[in-house]
Amino acid sequence: MPNISSIHHCYGCSLCATVCSKKIISITLNKNGFYEPTITDTTQCTDCSLCMEVCAFANKELANNDNRPIKSYAAWSKEYAVQRKCSSGGAGYELGRTLMAQGYEVCGVRYNAEAGRAEHYIASTPEELIPAIGSKYIQSYTLDGFCAIDRKRKYLVTGTPCQIDSFRRYIRKFRVEDNFVLMDFFCHSVPSMWVWNKYLRMVEQVTGKVNYASWRNKHTGWHDSWAMGIDGEKTAEKMDWHDSYNLLIREKKSFFNSRLSQGDVFYNLFLGDFCCNRACQKNCKYKYDVSPR
């Protein structure tokens, strides 16, 4: 099999498109709302098979399959503000800014409210890393972020286990593993982007166009954190009488907060496995105590 033309319902990591020298692989949402590769011009394919070699979905074994004993540690940020902002203890953010002090950049994930999606991007300073704080419980679009990586520089790359497994295959092909620190996490799966888009349309009836979203925020406390916090651009307007002038007062921007404990639709669909990727449910190689790192 020379290329990924027959790969469907995969992990959607986009490393096939990243490695393609002809740039003829596009990553788009399939009919079920998950990222999937498509070859846009088969006549330019050179049958190099690099797209298949870096694909974690097409290879049954893990890229880093040395069966080393797993050691566990507990860690959290000493800064309360970081703890408050992060979904858990802030260990990922602290690792990122620690490595930045050693000359690394970070390829992490932020939420792009304009595009309505999570996406990988490059952060070069601790300030630029802030949007990567917090979990994003939707599938991330990786292509732009991965393509922005200069393989001669040093990076911390974070992602789901399948994304990291494919990324290791990619940097191994170019013999640059020593330039990278890879970090994955326990992953439930990814929900359909069509479900997320439908949820946004529902929320926007309250907030107007969404300009910020946070998952697992702590607005309702640490122990009820399966919550959604969404800011919108809609403002309430009212007239007030002051000093003989009618003043138009714009009230605070709208805020939507919803919790699983109160029946949030998105969390119920996602955590109930009603809208998850087929590859996550049937082909995941990284469950339980298996890590691609």
Rank of each mutant, 00 (worst) to 15 (best):
V290C: 10
D240C: 08
M1W: 08
E105G: 06
I4N: 02
L95M: 15
A17T: 06
I130L: 15
Y111G: 01
L29M: 11
L200E: 05
G229Y: 09
F57W: 11
S5L: 07
G89P: 09
L29S: 06
S14N: 09
T160H: 02
R201N: 15
Y199V: 02
I249E: 11
G208K: 04
G92T: 12
Y155L: 06
H9P: 00
Q44S: 14
Y245R: 13
E53P: 00
K238N: 10
C55V: 05
P292Q: 06
K154F: 05
G134Q: 07
F270T: 01
I70H: 05
K218I: 04
M100A: 07
V190E: 02
R169H: 06
A213T: 12
S244K: 12
F270N: 01
M183T: 02
E233I: 13
S26I: 09
V157C: 05
R201W: 03
H242E: 15
R117I: 15
C107M: 12
K238A: 11
F256P: 00
E127D: 14
G263Q: 07
V181F: 09
E53K: 13
C48I: 07
N211H: 13
Y11E: 04
G90D: 07
W196K: 04
L248I: 14
A118N: 06
C275A: 14
V106I: 15
G272L: 08
Y137A: 04
A118S: 15
A279P: 12
G12T: 06
R84N: 14
R175I: 00
L99A: 09
P131V: 05
A56P: 13
I7L: 12
M100P: 01
S189F: 02
E233Q: 13
Y11V: 03
I27E: 07
T18H: 03
G90P: 07
C20S: 05
G116L: 10
I230G: 02
Y267K: 03
K78L: 12
E127N: 11
L62V: 08
D165R: 03
M193V: 00
Y111A: 04
I70C: 09
V54Q: 00
A213M: 14
T142A: 14
A148E: 12
